[in-house]
Each structure stands twice: as structure tokens, then as C-alpha cells.
Amino acid sequence: MNALAMKFEIPEQLNAAKPPERRGIRRDFVRMMVLNKNNGEVDHSTFFNLDQYLKKGDVLVLNNSRTVPAILNAKQLRSNKMIDPKVEIRLAHRKSEDRWEALIVSENVVEGDRLNFSSKLSATIIINGTREPFYILEFSLSNAQLYNEIYNLGEPVRYEYIEGEWGLDYYQTVYASVPGSVEMPSAGRAFSWELLLKLQRKGVKVAFIQLHTGLSYLLDDKYHQAPSENTESYQIPTETVELIQKAKETGGRVVAVGTTVVRALETAVNKHGDLIEKSGWTNLYITKNYPLKVVDGLITGLHEPEASHLQLLSAFIDEENLMGAYHQAINESYLWHEFGDMNLIL
């Protein structure tokens, strides 16, 4: 897959630098490239027309994880002496009610150092074993109180191709409800309540899972995180399992909104190949050789060359057809990344 993925380049002008709302269109009116996973045929449409490609009895599975503003600044102290008046912290994974795994943007970190974020919030740094470059932060607050301070103090993770410091609301899906993702589960960003209602009126069922995305952007090329090291927490509720089981029994299709949903659903499969209610941590790495057991279709954005997401997509559709479609997307000036256009594989 890497050899094929290397064969395309994204022109700079195709990096979506602004949210669609700031480009003059609704979030649900971005473009949508539709791929037939069986024969590779490509159709070009608008995301608001998604109902034309789904049918009564299909189940649309959404990730209801809410994005947290994961970039924080703190004063770094050692034995009550100032080490750095402003050190950047990037939250990576929530580990417990008062602990987060985090990236500390500093070359001078010692276990036991204290980080003061505000008069209300501080944290102690704990060495994280083999999880370089991540540390464990033990915060002075927990649960809702901790989240309140993170939301008060933090900024969303933004990438270098983004123009402008767009607020956290631009990094949320409309249905997000459970805080925990440090990077937006962006495949669902294009949905509006109007579109979801239109789909439900057609008879498409909507179900939710939860997978909290971790930090993928580590700032420094010397740190490389393999896909199998990307461990994220997830939860599959009983009602979602029941909706999917009924769809399977009646000929409906299970359409995942995002690679996060695919990974969560395919993780929660028992030895008989059946989806079950389950929660925990997953590092499932899906490639072209992975036999999908639950998911039939996928809604996703457009991914960069060599991204592990492309390997996951190749579990749905032949690699050559996928790359052919991506070349079409470039020729048709589709926009990439979290504020860009969409791709339906069905």
C-alpha cells in the first residue's frame, strides 16, 4: 500500500485551510466522492445528498466523543523553583479521573516537576515507562472539575495548514456529547441535525459508539508512533449492538462514520464474529488483509499519502481503485483534511 500511496501528492491549494462555514457554505454542503467498493466506480455529489445513497434499514454509526481543547500552557516548577514560565502541554489520552497521558514540549523535564496551569489547577509529572515521548500528568482536580478547567484554559489542536485560530466549536461534531477526544473525530463534522433528520425520516437508523481519539501530531520527526501504538479508549453500548444485529438480520448495511468507528466496532467482536457490548482500549490496525466482520460501508474524509487511514480504507475497496479515485479527487479539486470534503465507500 505504501508504494501506491506514494504516487500522489496533494497540491497546497487543496488543503482545506478554513472551515466550510468560513468559505461561504454550510458544513453539510461540502462535496462528497462516492466509491462503489465492488467495482471502483466513482460518483461525485454533495454531502447533503447522502440520503440518496443510503436505504431504509441501514444503520449509520456515529462517534459521539467530544473534542477537548488539548493544548495547555503552564508554569514549570522544580522544588518550588521556576524552570520555565511557559511550557506547552498537549494532552494525549485520559487514563483515569485525574490522570492524562501528555506530550510536554520541553527538553527539560524531570519526574516530580510541578505544572501550574492556573490558581485552580496544577499537575505533577510522572515518568511514563516506555511510552516516550509521553508523560503522565496527575492533576489536582478530577472528573467534571478537571474538564471544566481544561475547557476554560485550553486551545484545540491545530495543524500547520490551517489559516486562523478557529475556536473549539469549529472542531466539534453537532452530536458530540462525551468529552475525551484530543483531535476531532472529523468524519462526522459534515453532519447537521437537518441531514440526520432527513436520513431518519427515510428509515435509516442512527446509532452511537464512543472512541476518544488520541494525539497523533507529535511535533518532532524523531518521535514516530506506529499505528499499532495508537491505543484509544472506546465503548460500544447495548442499544447500538441491538440496532446493528437487527440490520444484519434484515439486510441492512452498517455504515461507519469515520475510521474511529470502524476500529471500535471491529474490536468489539467475539470469537464467533458477533458484535458485543464492550468497552476498553483498542490498538486494532486494519489493513487490506483484514476481514471486516461488522462494517459494510464507510464515510470518511480524504487522507494524506502514507497515512495509516489509507490502509484501513483498503480493507473496503481494492487499492488500485482507491488510488484511482484519489487521483480523480485531486483532478476535481476536492479539499483535504478535517475542514475538507467527504468520501463515501459503499
Rank of each mutant, 00 (worst) to 15 (best):
R66Y: 00
E41Y: 12
S65N: 06
V61D: 04
A70K: 13
V42N: 03
S119C: 00
I83C: 03
Y170F: 15
L35G: 01
E138V: 14
N38P: 00
S118D: 05
V59M: 09
E88I: 04
S118M: 03
T46W: 14
Y170R: 12
E41K: 15
Y135V: 12
I136P: 02
S106A: 08
F48C: 10
N49H: 13
G167L: 09
R66D: 03
I125W: 08
S140F: 11
L77R: 13
F117C: 06
N73I: 03
R66E: 11
N108M: 00
L91Y: 07
T124L: 12
L141T: 04
P156I: 04
D113V: 12
N73P: 00
A70H: 12
M33K: 07
A74Y: 07
L91C: 03
A92D: 08
S142Y: 15
E107F: 14
L146S: 02
Y135L: 09
V30I: 03
N63F: 02
G40K: 10
A102Q: 05
M82K: 11
F134Y: 07
V157Q: 10
D169K: 10
V68I: 15
N152Y: 02
K86V: 09
F139R: 12
S140E: 07
Y53K: 04
L141Q: 07
Y135D: 00
S122W: 11
D169V: 06
I162L: 10
L54V: 06
D98M: 09
K81H: 10
L54C: 06
R31D: 04
E97C: 03
V109K: 12
E165G: 13
L141W: 06
G112L: 10
V34H: 00
M82S: 15
M32P: 07
